[in-house]
């Protein structure tokens, strides 16, 4: 026992508990700092436009990041999320243009997202392929699929005569509703059900998970289905916003989701320290940062350097809760 702890315990305060609490609050501190900077940028007078724009921009990333937390908690990552969303958008628009209506479009987006997740999970769980590199290959497959679906055109749009119902969905409160409902469902699933606990055990130590009777295949499939549903919902919201898909739709979304989750304090190795809030906090932080930089007029290459420094600083601070003594590495194969 260190002298520090002995002294502290004499005073009735366990410093370790306090330090632990502070570490858990660090990602929130990062978000709080960005909120303060945002308020400064708006001269402490954010308007309803600021709030609406923020919600519009953050919704897609927040939903996808929250879904991706389940995969992260297994110690894996799916880099094909962005392209998967683009394929869902494409098929959703095709369904709507064919007369499926808004509900039909939503269902198509959801089913396609989950189907892509299912394929990824089968490759991972049944064929035991390393998830990260397998999703790199799937990213190419999905990109090529998207280009084939676009069939030689630059973009595919919602038919002009049918666009009004879609425009009606372009509503920040609807988006907020989707985010809140999806987050609450995931919060319950991740923290209060066996499914969530099994995910953390599997991420923490797959051998222990197997020995305790957790079916790795079943758990992996469930995880990717949840992430796939997030992709489908995000695709639906993307259609409401841009009403078109191109070969480059969602191209950076996969990396953005990864950065958002890490920004939010999620350990890449997953396991017991995984937090369902990481997706939401990280997404909020990234969108705030992007808006702050634009409002300050910092939009050239140097802004990327600032972003990089901030990203590393915030992640460094947030990682105190889960870092180990040895150099961090992961099993890639």
């Amino acid at each position: 026992m260190s002298a520090e702890t002995v002294t502290a315990s004499k005073k009735g305060i366990d410093l370790r508990v306090v330090m632990g609490m502070l570490r858990r609050l660090l990602p929130f501190a990062g978000l709080a700092l960005l909120i303060v900077l945002y308020l400064i940028s708006t001269n402490f007078r954010p308007t309803s436009l600021h709030i609406q724009t923020f919600i519009d921009q953050v919704a897609t990333m927040a939903i996808m990041s929250t879904g991706a937390v389940f995969i992260f908690s297994l110690g894996s990552f799916d880099i094909s999320l962005g392209v998967g969303a683009a394929v869902s958008v494409c098929l959703g628009i095709m369904a709507y243009n064919a007369g499926a209506g808004v509900v039909g479009m939503f269902l198509v987006c959801l089913v396609v997202g989950m189907a892509i997740g299912f394929v990824n999970s089968v490759l991972s769980a049944v064929f035991r392929m390393p998830v990260f590199v397998m999703t790199i290959a799937m990213m190419s497959v999905l990109t090529a699929t998207l280009q084939i679906l676009l069939g030689g055109k630059t973009d595919l749009r919602v038919t002009t005569t049918m666009v009004e119902p879609i425009k009606a969905l372009d509503n920040p409160y609807l988006r907020l509703g989707f985010v809140l409902v999806f987050f609450l469902i995931c919060l319950v699933l991740f923290n209060f059900t066996k499914m969530g606990r099994r995910n953390k055990v599997l991420g923490g130590n797959p051998k222990v998970a197997e020995q305790t009777g957790i079916s790795i295949a079943k758990q992996t499939i469930l995880t990717f289905l949840i992430s796939g549903s997030a992709v489908g919902i995000a695709a639906f919201l993307l259609i409401a916003r841009s009403r078109a898909v191109t070969a480059n739709t969602g191209v950076s979304l996969g990396m953005d989701v990864m950065m958002a989750i890490v920004f939010g304090g999620m350990p890449l190795a997953g396991g017991a320290y995984s937090k369902i809030s990481a997706g939401i906090i990280g997404s909020f932080s990234m969108v705030l940062l992007s808006q702050i930089l634009t409002m300050q007029g910092i939009t050239t290459g140097w802004s990327q350097v600032y972003k990089a420094v901030l990203f590393l600083a915030v992640v460094f601070v947030a990682s105190f809760s889960y870092r180990e003594k040895m150099l961090s590495r992961a099993e890639m194969f």
């Binding site: 519009d56 973009d155 070969a247 739709t249």
Partner: peptide, 27 residues
């Protein structure tokens, strides 16, 4: 005139929409 720039969105409609929103927020 004060000019404000956003990153080139390429053909990504969502990125272009985001750019418009950020420019509005930038005044």
């Amino acid at each position: 005139v004060e000019f404000k720039f956003v990153p080139a969105p390429g053909t990504d409609s969502d990125a272009a929409v985001r750019g418009v929103e950020e420019l509005k927020l930038a005044g």
